[in-house]
Design a binder for these strands. Structure first.
Lengths: 338, 338
DNA sequence: AGTTTCGGGCAAAACGGTTGACCGTCCCCG
DNA sequence: CGGGGACGGTCAACCGTTTTGCCCGAAACT
């Protein structure tokens, strides 16, 4: 399938300028290796390149030199739609600032593609977003020495996967502590059924803070479907004064909770307090929900910096893992109880 | 430089399986060229590849075969932040559906765009978003036969740039017609100073519809800074009954208009009607503004389909240009005047 | 026995660059 | 007169695959 019609190569320039292809490469590459060249030759080459409209082939360049200022971003869910937008905005901004391009690998949805994860190697290194990335595929890359960084903590593979994440443990604990200070004693905790590391972190932080603050926390795993007015009423009858809801990708649990509260005719925070371990889904009406902010942009930026340090070693190596703290959102949905 | 530590190559597999590297390539490539191979050899190679954890190098693959299911997306402004999100969501969705990966080239602002536009050739073809892409760089790619598609109409280069766009002419005309039917006769038209094709289209549609409907439309170019209460009052005194505002990337013109209206104590649509040629910036409070919807996702999808048809010729060639129509948004800011 | 015919597989040329080693010439110095 | 630089570039190997053309041995015809 050969070359794109008419694209001039270094060899073409060489012919025109009357030098060897190697010389062309040296001139066009800015002569980083310190080859001795006369200014006349340099200009002849440059001029010929200009005349021919030469455009270097990035693929060949990369094959030959193994680095190309390209960072991969693998997302297991659609990147532009979902909640990842702030993270990606951070990634993009930092990458642009560092002069790196981004190559996006979007899981096709159908297959959690091994193949696609492998193609990741087109880049100099790759960021992995979202929990649903098969660990074995990552392990493959890792042992091959390919630089990868996960956004979101990754416990698998013996913690060998470098990552940046949000400190959900501390942030969740802080929310619970706030509830404790407001006098709450019985809390219901609603989380998604799946066992993502971020879910585990939130629950761990919650439990620790609950133990410290003398709260009773009962955990319910739900996808939202089984959440209705009866459940809400039952909990209130049990003496529950606050609901703590995990932030999930789709917001399903939160939405279901809101609906159930509405159906039960329960007011927030009048009848029950409500907190989200994170932020409510966008466009949620009504008073600001108490919780914390996930520093998406900052995560994205930090991830890029970490990856770049892996790709271009030399500059001081930062720690392979980093947890960013989440600023609390006070909100108006935590009431003080007697 | 050199290979990533320990990454096995086809040559390594060949040694283990006791065959030549070429044979490995044939086997791993699924033998599309119909080379005769014994099943035993095939299995030996496959097994060796498995054992060694072989991962094909996408770069080498692409260098050798000139096509790699990679679509480029060049954005002249940050992609994840700005208003391009719906378009990109459409691009991503369609690309994923077609099994293509996306490689994003974000104009860094710093580096000369030319270089980045050239790097575009890492992909099999490239989408260009946003007005601020230098035409000469595009021309370079175009004449080289590199497949490109612009999102947003492009008049430069003699219309040779394939594109998909929104039919701003028709949509804008429709808004003006609505105003005419509501009895408006004098309209002030606020547009951005720069001459983007999309701006021109809106203005053209507006003028045409105004002529048809017997409206007087006066155009003001502004970046928003010089818009204040005095201007508003002057216009109203002149008998203007409706303001038509262009949708801009930043929303600056719209915001300024809102502010000026507020400062002048003018109510919408009580004292004056207001329409946007597009949608107001996100998060605008108050009643729904009349205007039209730009079909972002659809644009993205159509652009990808067009690009793919350019990259993989064979399937019927669609028209090189396509304009998608914009569904009107009735809104509540156009009042009937006597 | 002498050709075809086939199954099997290998060698080698691309693809377009990058890079370290090496080669002539001149000139200068001891 | 022999040797050491400096100057200006060129050579050729290499990056990892794809893809053709060709070769070889054995079975099948004539």
């Amino acid at each position: 399938m050969g070359r794109v019609r008419g694209m001039p190569r270094q060899a073409d320039i060489a012919r025109v300028a009357g030098v060897s292809q190697a010389t062309v490469s040296v001139v066009l590459g800015g002569n980083r290796t310190g080859v001795r060249l006369s200014e006349r030759t340099r200009l002849r080459v440059l001029e010929a390149a200009e005349r021919l409209g030469y455009v270097p082939d990035p693929v060949a360049k990369r094959l030959a030199s193994s680095r190309d200022n390209l960072l991969g971003v693998y997302t297991s869910t659609p990147a532009f739609a979902g909640s990842g937008a702030p993270i990606l905005a951070g990634v993009e901004a930092e990458a642009a600032a560092l002069g790196k391009d981004l190559i996006m690998f979007t899981a096709s949805g159908a297959a959690p593609d091994h193949a696609r994860i492998r193609r990741t190697r087109l880049a100099d290194g790759c960021l992995f977003l979202g929990g649903h990335v098969p660990a074995d595929a990552l392990g493959e890359l890792l042992t091959a020495g390919f630089p990868i960084v996960s956004i979101g903590r990754r416990a698998e593979l013996g913690g060998r996967v470098p990552h940046v994440g949000a400190d959900y443990v501390a942030a969740s604990a802080e929310v619970i502590t706030r509830l404790a200070r407001a006098g709450h004693r019985r809390v219901r905790y609603l989380r998604e059924p799946a066992d993502a590391p971020s879910s585990g972190d939130r629950e761990r932080g919650t439990r620790a803070a609950a133990a410290d603050g003398g709260l009773s926390v009962v955990v319910t795993r739900t996808d939202g479907a089984d959440l209705g007015a009866p459940a809400i009423r039952r909990w209130l009858d049990d003496g529950v004064t606050a609901l703590v809801v995990e932030e999930t990708e789709t917001g399903a649990v939160f939405h279901a909770t809101r609906r159930a509260l509405r159906e039960a005719g329960v007011s927030v925070p009048g009848d029950v307090s409500l907190a989200v371990l994170g932020r409510p889904p966008g466009g949620t009406p009504g008073p600001e929900i108490s919780g914390f902010e996930v520093p998406g942009r900052a995560l994205g930026r930090a991830a890029v910096r970490l990856l770049v340090s892996l790709v271009d070693p030399g500059a001081g190596e930062p720690a392979p893992h980093r947890l960013l703290s989440c600023p609390p959102v006070m909100g108006e949905t935590i009431a003080t109880v007697s």
